[in-house]
Design a protein around this nucleic acid. Structure first.
Lengths: 188, 188
DNA sequence: TTCATTATTTGACCTAAGTCAAATTTCTTG
DNA sequence: CAAGAAATTTGACTTAGGTCAAATAATGAA
């Protein structure tokens, strides 16, 4: 499934110049400071953010507790998927975890660009497919692995997460309490 | 989000005759008996199945136990998403829970049709978006609701599930043991 | 109908992970 | 550097839900 990213990148590279320039022309660079919110709960996610540098996360509040649903690193595309797709209020926040630089594209501008450059529809399709598979995998991992296994899995597959991100956030991303994560780490 | 199905149906209705006929011409009707498998683990999901009548489910085995990941009713599109998208072996099975009638379309034939009728790419995109949002919602429910809440939720939103499907399958769909589901029901 | 098979419920006990509270450790910032 | 704040760990206890086993109930084929 990781190789699907390669396929997407290949597809982007294969685009004609016209489409590529069209795609670039609708994006603009922005920076956010650590702690800044790119999207707030109840706001409509009207923009997508391609992370150029730094890290960010997506989270929501469940009776006062933050549940991190996704972590974003270089080259990741940060959006609240359903809010973006339906252009309806988001239940999620998007927050810069470090100072970040992003390439911002407005929803409506991208929709218009798809009409002008139909090859972008296929790109959009590939991105949606990738996200669907990613969420499916996450659900699968929650069903089949214990908290310890999920931690070890992340430690293996994405050591950069453990190194750069606070345990509070990692715990909420793993779906365990901070204390449980601490005990898992002590045990290993 | 349910309304997204309406949006998809509206889009289908808005298609030009040529595209519509193209779409129909690549599908064929098939029937399966109760208990028959439309897809087995380790097979590549090379077909999509639009349920015309009857019910089906998608599941995988986790150390000997069946975990139901999706239930299919009339008008649902049954595929193992990642296997279909990547054309790689599936970890999931698709099984007819009753006698069913389905409209079958081959992956490759649909891919070819997308080239000939580009509006089908947008349809494919909408279906992928819908599935991504559906999985996201499911993950969200697992994180924020107790087993009892999930049961009540299904009872509310999809009473037909409770009426037609065995508790063993419902339990595995809710992510609880059969015994726990039985106790939840006794309590209510 | 009846017997057997399958589905569901109930009981007793166990376990992973949560909660609340307090103790440490690690960062920050004046 | 020191003091306060934030992050992490540790302890004691609780709980939702799991497991294994046995008891009922429901279904279906002869």
């Amino acid at each position: 499934m990781t190789s699907y990213i390669d396929k997407i990148n290949l597809y982007i590279k294969s685009l004609d110049n016209d489409t590529l320039i069209g795609l670039q022309s609708i994006a603009s660079i922005k920076t956010y400071k650590k702690g800044e919110l790119l999207l707030r709960q109840n706001e409509v996610c009207t923009k997508s953010y391609l992370i150029i540098s730094g890290t960010a996360r997506k989270y929501y509040l469940n009776d006062g507790k933050e549940i991190t649903t996704e972590l974003f690193f270089e080259n990741d595309l940060a959006v609240s998927f359903d809010s973006y797709t339906l252009q309806q209020p988001s239940r999620e926040f998007i927050e810069a975890l470090t100072a970040i630089s992003v390439s911002v594209t407005k929803y409506q501008t991208f929709e218009d660009a798809k009409k002008k450059y139909p090859k972008l529809i296929t790109l959009d399709l590939m991105l949606a497919e990738y996200y669907a598979m990613w969420v499916e995998k996450r659900l699968f991992e929650f069903h089949t692995m214990t908290a310890t296994q999920r931690y070890l899995h992340i430690l293996n597959k994405s050591p950069h997460i453990i190194q750069t991100i606070s345990l509070t956030i990692i715990a909420s991303y793993l779906g365990v309490s901070l204390e449980t994560l601490s005990r898992i780490r002590a045990k290993i």
